[in-house]
Design a protein around this nucleic acid. Sequence first.
DNA 1: CGCGCCCTCCACCTATAGATGGACCGCGCC
DNA 2: GGCGCGGTCCATCTATAGGTGGAGGGCGCG
Lengths: 216, 216
Amino acid sequence: MTQESIKVLVVEDHHVVRQGLVALLNVADGIEVVGEAADGVEAIAQFRKHQPDVTLTDLRLPRLSGVEVIQRIRMETPQARFIVLTTYDGDEDIYRALQAGARAYLLKGMTSDELIATIRAVHAGKSHIPPAIAQKLAERMGAEELTPREFDVLEQIVRGKSNKEIAAELEISEATVKTHINSLLGKLGVTDRTQAATAAIQRGIVPLESLRKPGQ
Amino acid sequence: MTQESIKVLVVEDHHVVRQGLVALLNVADGIEVVGEAADGVEAIAQFRKHQPDVTLTDLRLPRLSGVEVIQRIRMETPQARFIVLTTYDGDEDIYRALQAGARAYLLKGMTSDELIATIRAVHAGKSHIPPAIAQKLAERMGAEELTPREFDVLEQIVRGKSNKEIAAELEISEATVKTHINSLLGKLGVTDRTQAATAAIQRGIVPLESLRKPGQ
DNA sequence: CGCGCCCTCCACCTATAGATGGACCGCGCC
DNA sequence: GGCGCGGTCCATCTATAGGTGGAGGGCGCG
């Protein structure tokens, strides 16, 4: 063999998208798709089996999120390399993925060339973050972290709960709820709960799916 | 030729997804992808050029939305058949797409078999709506329509405006704003503006993208 | 024309939300 | 041990939001 192919694992729950990725990558020189996975658990199994050079993964996955997949795999294989590929560009997701050890973050709207170039770059040990993403990341870095409790309160706000209901839910007094709200409004840079709710959804702090109905 | 292939036009702005669809469809018997388009304007041009039997389209498209594409094409070619394929399942989108004349509505998470079966069914003149989607549609049908003004107010609420700001923006009194809010809260089946905002986003009444920053 | 719907506005009242400042406890860290 | 920080709680005040009822004008439709 003249040169080694880059072994790639594709992790993506949407059939058509996965199919598309595999189709794109299979025609690229020097790239070989060694495995596919449709959820987080399967992704880890496939990784162990094939030891790919680069893992291309979605963030929103059944069973285990993309971030969890990255974290777990890196615990046993720290040199593993990841490219996150997602439709959404919520600041929080980007931050968490890169934090977990992803080397690149791409949106699904990118061209095949970009994708292939990124795989090569990441395999060569480089990182690759598109400018638009880098900017969001920068914004996010400037923002303050929410405390766990503030996060709990924010989640309830997004669910449409009143302060009284939040107090009951979290078993704290309404006064405390207001304290947390006041604090989180400041950190999010907004002035009321409605803005906090939309900001939380937009930034991916509270995933939109989570508010369908569950979690009471 | 033993039997005619079904001519399909694929309209989808995300490269990898479009690639995946084309790859999936090209291996299916009796289906031929005659064209691809990455935005609404191109979709109409491709339709005119190839006169496909079935058009498979995303709803969120650059330049012209999927709904607009369906409407415009049906103005000149009423018998054209459409399958809407989208990641989101906001009630409003489903409603508008079917209203515009789509015969089927599929989520991107579906299997290739479902997709192919749906294309055949739609080509044969049938409609195909997955049960989960049908249920949402039913819910939506039961809901009351928002008046244009109520919609304006709701949009401002989602943007995080206060009643006073909304009044200024729409050049009406704050009392009127409250009247509209009261009315739309009832129609949406929610009890406060925060719930109205998340409901609007969830149902796709106000697209999440629209609140990035623009529109002042 | 009369009816219904929408938009507009008003007054009034109550409940909720947000702002402020001060307080106590527990925990990790230097 | 002292310090900082997060979480908890309190009281209080003001602004905003939401609920109710009533009222006028415009517009389309049978």
